[in-house]
Design a protein around this nucleic acid. Sequence first.
DNA 1: GTTTGAAATGTAATCGATTACACAGTGCGG
DNA 2: CCGCACTGTGTAATCGATTACATTTCAAAC
Lengths: 343, 343
Amino acid sequence: MQMPKPRITDVAQVAGVSTATVSRALTQPDRLSEKTRQRVFDAIRTTGYRVNRAARNLRTQRAGAVLVLVPNLGNPFFSLILSSINDVFAANGYSVLVFDSQQPSAPDQVVSDYLFNGSADGVITLDGHMSATMGETLKNADLLRNVVFCCEWSDKLLLPSIRSDNPLGARLAVDHLVALGHRKIAHVTGPSDNILARVRRSVFEDRCAHHGLSIAPDWIIPGDFTLSCGARAAERLIALADRPTAVFCASDEIALSLISRAQQAGLRVPEDLSVVGFDDIEIAGHVSPALTTIRQDRALLGRMAAEELLGRLQSDPSPHAVPISFAPVELITRSTTAPPPGR
Amino acid sequence: MQMPKPRITDVAQVAGVSTATVSRALTQPDRLSEKTRQRVFDAIRTTGYRVNRAARNLRTQRAGAVLVLVPNLGNPFFSLILSSINDVFAANGYSVLVFDSQQPSAPDQVVSDYLFNGSADGVITLDGHMSATMGETLKNADLLRNVVFCCEWSDKLLLPSIRSDNPLGARLAVDHLVALGHRKIAHVTGPSDNILARVRRSVFEDRCAHHGLSIAPDWIIPGDFTLSCGARAAERLIALADRPTAVFCASDEIALSLISRAQQAGLRVPEDLSVVGFDDIEIAGHVSPALTTIRQDRALLGRMAAEELLGRLQSDPSPHAVPISFAPVELITRSTTAPPPGR
DNA sequence: GTTTGAAATGTAATCGATTACACAGTGCGG
DNA sequence: CCGCACTGTGTAATCGATTACATTTCAAAC
């Protein structure tokens, strides 16, 4: 009852041609005469033939797949990026492999595994943790040009990188609060080993200094981008004797849960406390009060990264340029920011 | 400067054994003597050898990868499931391919592509849309046993399915509202072609009937699980002459944006309007008021589905059982539900 | 010291495509 | 009518592993 899968020779037989011709019909149809091309396609249809991917990959030494390394797949910030990466590659005949880099195995390990054993032709990593030694290893195998960073990146390893203009984002946030009249601004950071968290924090500090604002040590609250750290930050903020009138949060999730906890403690947002987030995740506009935040164009980030990698996979010559592209960010003013109390 | 990738023959040469022995060292190490096994592993280390996946796949007729079909990758509800699926397969040496089934190509098409051309050994689909004819096609190739549904499922196609106990969830929601004293309950549905939406709606109706509540046609508001439809639903609700005192929403995202819009219109939640969601996405507990909802254990769903598929891929005999497993759901009572006004 | 069976290893066929190279057919200019 | 360039197609080598089958090694039993 169960037919064996048709192979290329079966198609060739049915069409009355050689396997080479069938193969050419599939990969370079214009090299065949109209007549045989039709015959082959008919035969493919009647046999129900599908190219065996493993055989093709072995012969052509390509995988037809790319790996996306995602730190925390459960985070909605990443999943939209993944989605647009998927769109680009699907449209170009590539499969997309995902790997959650929070897994025990280090990102380094995963990237080299997939690249070296030929499971993937290239890698987009949303995780900036990659060591310089891994870079060396990849370079020696001439695989370095098949890796691009998206969103995060590493200072230790120069690779093409698509990222939001984080400095601008942080500046917009601070300037917005200052323009409203705030002089005491707090900051909830991301994880200290995260490049985005470091950039946002350092620009926050610089920009405060630029405006002549001093920052009490208590006002910089270490966090990790998550909801739960936002709630904790709110508690610390509330307990402060000299309480800031505004907070710049390193992520929307921090901001949202911080607001929620602050409200539960009787603080009004934005009347008593202004809050600015970062990312503009979808829900930010659908809570009340709606979150003022810095928009990152996640779909664009994913698309740009995918197209950069695609270009590298398809262009044979090895252009040794290492482009860094900045996706625009934008201040989205909603309802969680207002002038400080008593103005 | 650039060494060619070492192949199995290179390892064999270095170790002074045949390729068969090297291969066995990799796949069935206990069939080798301690001494040669060590020699082979040493040689692997010194050469930096990695198994070529395409070659292995071609020879063994397996892909070592599974496909996860996700309707809307950007939706955080799915991405956490994806994450736990990824964990299970990563731990068992499988790669995970993802595909967003919102892509132009129909789910059917994608599944058959990946399975037939040997890109994937199995499929977990979070998308319940699959035709009976596709089922036939797969059955004919004996590939049907390598597909499992997770979360969603199809009535037209009997396949192993891991799902939350949706009827219980809807019942818990309605009963909770009724217990608080509500007699006029609205429902915002998911897309009408979605199996989950249909089940939740029909249980909602049944359960209201069971409690002797009548439902005005206006009180069933068609939605699509998204944030924006929640806002629209709020507007319709507010405009109603005979307004319900409670709403059961088919998803948390609907509930959250509905609440937000209702609050903007001056309605108090839960005093004027009680709201119950469905899913218990992470943010549900981190907004104010915190959302009362039906918890689905997404990590468990993903894990169960992954383990079911894994079992099927690893067990040769074809057990023709088609298990349907229900993951438990739970009412999480938070702060968006209260007795109706005037009680 | 054989015999014998199990354990360890080797030889070579095989998976299913792609593609270098060879060859046949066709049309054109001289 | 021949040679030449070009187009279209076929033959067979090849990608890099796995594994059926053959062969060697070895220890225990006689």
